[in-house]
Amino acid sequence: MTIAAQSLSLGTRLGGVTLQLRQGEVTAICGPNGAGKSSLLTALAGILPLDGGSVRLDADLLADLDPADRARRIGFLPQQAELAWDLSVEVLAGLGRLPWNLGAEADRAAIDRALADMQLSDFRQRPLSRLSGGERARAMLARVLAGEPCWLLADEPLANLDLAHQLTLLRHFRKLAGEGLGVALVLHDLAQAMNHAGRVVVLNGGQVVADGPPEQALSAEVIERVWGVTARWLGDPGARALVV
């Protein structure tokens, strides 16, 4: 099962990106500001009209897929976790069930599972405004998981989270990938990408400049070339630190 992007182009933001995401691994998308990371992720999610190129979900063209069908298969967590109305945790998670039509029983079971996964079962009735930043981020993720997608695409899911919450979420992403989900994350923290992703895609100026295992794609040479920063990695695999 794959999401395959073929020469995606969009104005100056994406200049012919070809890329394949596989299920069962965590792919980190890294790059400097303005590299086109968010555009790529929204294009892979099928919610950004493109100037050129195509995205295929297995054999189907994403653009031809029924929107509800696409929504059932690809879960998307946007960068700014926006919430116009102060919903309760449970009602928020229920929004993830909108593309489905399997009845209240199935919805309830999926919502219960997602909340339990995100350790939010005790907060079901609580409005989002009364949650901490970390709980809020987990609730937003629970909304995506309640939709039981095969793919999880998240745009900077670790932004504004403290270290403990970052690690909790990263561990969870790895667990989901272990269960067979395809996970793609836009990450700014290169050390988190190095230690937690199975694969890293580096974008620069709307193009893929490196793609492979973290040690390769985030080598000191790539970091210098793309970010213009001289740095080296210390420590052992899985616990590396970037020293500038």
């Binding site: 509800a68 929504a71 690809i74 946007p78 700014q80 116009a84 929004l95 909108l98 909304r143």
Partner: peptide, 20 residues
């Protein structure tokens, strides 16, 4: 109604939930 519910999460998330 359903599409308006999805829009609570913003336009991008609503589109990802199948809203046209």
């Amino acid at each position: 109604g359903k599409a308006l519910d999805a829009l609570t999460l913003g336009e991008a998330a609503a589109r990802s939930l199948g809203v046209e």
